[in-house]
Design a binder for these strands. Structure first.
Length: 445
RNA sequence: CGGGGCGUAGCGCAGUCUGGUAGCGCAUCUGGUUUGGGACCAGAGGGUCGCAAGUUCGAAUCUUGCCGCCCCGACCA
């Protein structure tokens, strides 16, 4: 992609409304544009990151054997009346009347909708379990939206739902998602810690939040640091194998957020040298809520004995748009964002320092064509000053940068700069083929 | 929802107290000089001062109402 043909409205100054670093950087790097409080447009570079994250989440759901569906954003009030939540949900739910004055709502979540789908189509225990997910925009009319996309009113979520014949089978599904979540966050380069959580207004008793460690997170968390080492072996866990054992292993470590924290319990459960305190951002939540919705909404199947039974359900969310902000919170410096390779809007950025020099430009163009053939690449062909180009490329966080200028012409070399380390090295133009082989291709996603 | 703050050019702000018809920096456009870390010179364009009503000869400025946005708290992916 040539920058001269791309919408990238970077800001030099910090917009006055931004409070935390990820919000500031998303606005400054031209990723998002605020539409109204807690509601944002995603501009080209921001959308690319959002899609990267979405696709990793999707891929990991698919790997775990979950089937993708897509439910609507607008739902009828009827099914919410069935579950009783139309009254319970309160002002966070955006209520709408259609032209026939029928009560509708913009979905804050989808338990009712998915339960309705399930009960229309599944009638026998033989068809269980059913594992379904969708990735959709939701709306919760928060009292106070803040922190940009970290706590917007409109947000993109992956929601999954499980349907099982009994509590034991339901726990198998729960464990499947538990592992799936650890794999998903690890793949994005995040340290995610599962924490026992309250089930909240939705009810139930089996619930974990997944929190990523970040100095600027919203809540204080206390945990056994050995859980971090456990995280490193997560890729080896096979869904076909026993999932209960690794999940129990994770659950055995102490990890709680400040509202559940108790000092004496912490001391009792964790040796002093393993005690850790950090700030964290909640990016995922899984919980099992039994027959809460299946009973009220009559989502029944026939069991092997011919009797009708309410199915056991669970629900599993990942805040995809929130993850964009969360990753920035964990990965930035004073110059701007530092994207992990797997979610970067472009893996490579090429800076042409002398766009008016024909020889330099034709070299840069060749290198751009060569690299962009294999990797997503943004090519800064604009006629700005060198400093502007360097700082812009750093601000938007492109992990691998190629710098081409007059020096390249005289020395037949290009400079490669790593955004994260800041280290540079010079590569002979004739050996670019060898250089490029160092980088794995992420085009598979 | 309780408390606080802000709304003036695309962005960041001054001017409001003490009323006299709007300014600075950055950005943008033109010409020129620059070109390895947010350049320089010269010129130009861009604002019914959030909206409405009121007071006044005259309102960005005073009064009232409304709208929007932000921050702290309670709540949440």
């Amino acid at each position: 992609m040539k920058l001269s043909k791309y919408l990238l409205p970077v800001l030099k100054e910090t917009p006055s409304e931004a409070e935390i670093i990820s919000h500031t950087l998303m606005l400054r790097s031209g990723m998002i544009s605020q539409s109204s409080s807690g509601i944002y447009s995603w501009l080209p570079i921001g959308l690319r990151v959002l899609k990267k994250i979405e696709n990793i989440v999707r891929d990991e759901q698919n790997n775990a054997g979950v089937n993708e569906i897509l439910m609507p954003t607008i739902q009828p009030a009827d099914i919410w009346n069935e579950s009783g939540r139309y009254e319970d949900y309160g002002k966070e739910m955006l209520r709408i009347n259609d032209r026939h004055d029928r009560q509708m709502l913009y979905g804050p979540t989808n338990e009712e909708q998915v339960t309705d789908i399930f009960r229309r189509s599944i009638k026998s225990y033989k068809e269980l379990p059913q594992l379904l997910y969708h990735i959709q925009w939701k709306f919760r009319d928060e009292l106070r939206p803040r922190f940009g996309v970290m706590r917007g009113r409109e947000f993109l979520m992956k929601d999954a739902y499980s349907f099982d014949i009994d509590e034991m089978k339901s726990e198998d599904s729960y464990n499947r998602f538990f592992i799936c979540y650890l794999k998903t966050f690890a793949r994005m380069g995040l340290k995610a810690i599962p924490m026992a959580a309250d089930t909240g207004p939705i009810g139930g008793d089996l619930s974990h939040e997944f929190v990523i460690l970040s100095k600027t997170g919203e809540s204080d968390i206390y945990f056994d640091q050995r859980i971090l080492q456990e995280d490193e072996s997560i890729n080896e866990i096979d869904y076909e194998g026993d999932l209960k054992k690794p999940v129990e292993k994770f659950k055995s470590y102490y990890s709680v957020s400040d509202d559940k924290y108790n000092e004496s319990e912490f001391n009792k459960n964790v040796d002093k040298q393993n005690q850790m305190q950090s700030r964290g951002i909640e990016v995922g939540h899984i919980f099992s809520f039994g027959t809460k919705y299946s009973t009220s909404m009559k989502a029944n199947v026939l069991d092997f004995d011919g009797k009708e039974k309410s199915v056991y359900m669970g629900s599993y969310g990942i805040g995809i748009s929130r993850l964009v902000g969360a990753i920035i919170e964990t990965s930035h410096d004073e110059k701007g964002i530092i994207w992990p390779d797997v979610v970067a809007p472009f893996l490579f950025g090429i800076i042409n320092l002398s766009p008016k020099d024909e020889i330099v430009s034709s070299n840069a163009e060749k290198i751009y064509n060569y690299i962009s053939d294999k990797y997503e690449t943004i090519y800064d062909d604009k006629k700005d000053n060198a400093g502007v180009k360097f700082s812009r490329m750093d601000l938007i966080g492109i992990p691998h940068q190629i710098i081409i200028g007059n020096k390249s012409k005289s020395d037949n070399e290009i400079e490669y700069k790593n955004r994260r380390t800041g280290n540079s090295e010079f590569i002979n133009i004739d050996k670019i083929d060898e250089f490029i082989k160092r980088f794995p291709s992420y085009s598979a996603i």
